[in-house]
Design a protein around this nucleic acid. Structure first.
Lengths: 248, 248
DNA sequence: AGCGAGTATTGATCTCGATCAATTACAGGC
DNA sequence: GCCTGTAATTGATCGAGATCAATACTCGCT
């Protein structure tokens, strides 16, 4: 597979890698044409802040490529990631001017953007979009709630295993690969960002990564490339229910 | 089983205490009439389970009175509350058959219910409802994210103070009272439920409640009635931005 | 009254992850 | 090659909250 080139900022919706997962998933060809006419692309490099908490956000967007994070910071500097946006995820709140959290590019990212007011209008006129947005928001709420279980009750080791399995699964699903047996992917997060996600310190993250490696659950090639010899082995470490995989 | 032994209230939407906060908030009189014709009430006693995780949930509902909780349980018994439903909050997912979490009545509750399929139809036909539902879901997502910060980064004392201030605020807003100065309310949760909310043990909850009492931040009258001599004092203990820029 | 079950408080001790600190790995610039 | 700065690992110690355990409070019951 040729890897993501961030160089082409204007593509057809029809060829878009997130065409069938993003807010536009349900749109018909004529609706797509309308979207096509008002969308525009933006790129950010890893580490760049897309919006600061409290600032006015004059657009909404879908993540096309790369990973972005939503982070809350307390006055004394304690930080907690509260959202991880992978390709096809939506950013921005239609009805709210100010961004409630810092939005930061974890890797280089490509966004498909819409200025807010045309998008608001679009929502009114296009039930396919507002329905999909509701559905995505409900999914995000579910994800947030699973995350709450992780933050409140899981051990450090379980937290790491859970994060790795979430990323592995989303990555596999994006590439239309099964997430069973051997799986490999690039970690889009630094150890510090992982710590912010998991409510841990970066030292604890590092220690637990080493422990999982020693135990043969994961293999590290460089700092960022992870390979998992047996995905089920990783799942056993997450503390989650393995049986009765409840699908809708 | 819902308790049907007592006469269930059958009230007019117009007189409903949550008329202007629930999913129906934006509805016009004619839309209300339609709702009126298909709604029905259910009551549950404190401690009763409304739905078990994984079970089919054939209705959606608004909480009219009382408090309900959404809880996730791990195989080994670790439990985390992931949602706290106060009056006007909505329960159930339009597009999903199975309930993802246990729904339990924390106090006696009164629900305003709709069978799922008529409600789905209603959403399609009534943009005022689906818009409001999206808005409420986004608010819930915001609340979940603040909760994530609490779970991941706050100390036990800050967690308790945060929970008390959340309940105090919602309670005051429901009664149209200001949440400043002296505030008093009934705790709708046991110490154990508080622990499940906060990702703590019930012993730690009890100790921190005693500490806050000793420090004069709260007063306890019985186990459940809380009074707060100075709400700002409580807010200082939550670790949150006070925005007024009071201290350092 | 006395009993029992559920709920809450308080004490003693232990442990997991935080904190403080030193070292290593690695990429980019010259 | 050699700096320099950031990311990551590893070690030593500490402490907040968990765990184990005993005791009190409350309400309904006979």
């Amino acid at each position: 597979m040729p890897n993501r080139s961030l160089a082409l900022p204007q593509q057809e919706c029809a060829d878009c890698p997130i065409r069938h997962r993003a807010v536009c998933a349900r749109c018909e060809t004529d609706e797509l044409e309308h979207l096509e006419s008002i969308k525009y692309y933006r790129k950010y490099e890893a580490g760049q802040t897309v919006v600061w908490a409290g600032d006015k956000m004059d657009f909404v967007a879908s993540v096309v490529e790369g990973v972005a994070s939503l982070t809350q910071t307390m006055e004394d500097g304690r930080r907690q990631m509260v959202g991880l946006l992978l390709p096809s995820d939506f950013m921005g709140r239609p009805n709210r001017e100010a961004a409630p959290y810092d939005v930061v590019a974890s890797t280089d990212i490509l966004l498909c953007c819409f200025r807010r007011s045309p998008f608001l209008q679009l929502i009114e006129e296009t039930p396919h979009i507002s329905q999909r947005l509701l559905e995505m928001t409900l999914d995000e709420l579910d994800a947030a709630r699973e995350w709450m279980l992780l933050l409140g009750r899981k051990t450090a080791r379980e937290k790491i295993a859970s994060l790795l399995s979430i990323i592995a699964r989303r990555d596999a699903s994006l590439k239309n690969l099964p997430s069973t047996g051997e799986v490999a992917f690039d970690l889009p997060l630094t150890r510090e960002a992982m710590a912010d996600y998991l409510g841990l310190t970066l030292e604890t993250v590092s220690r637990q990564m080493s422990a999982l490696k020693k135990d043969g659950v994961i293999r590290l090639e460089g700092k960022r490339h992870i390979s998992i010899p047996d995905f089920d082995l990783l799942l056993d470490e997450t503390g989650d229910d393995t049986d009765g995989g409840v699908l809708e």
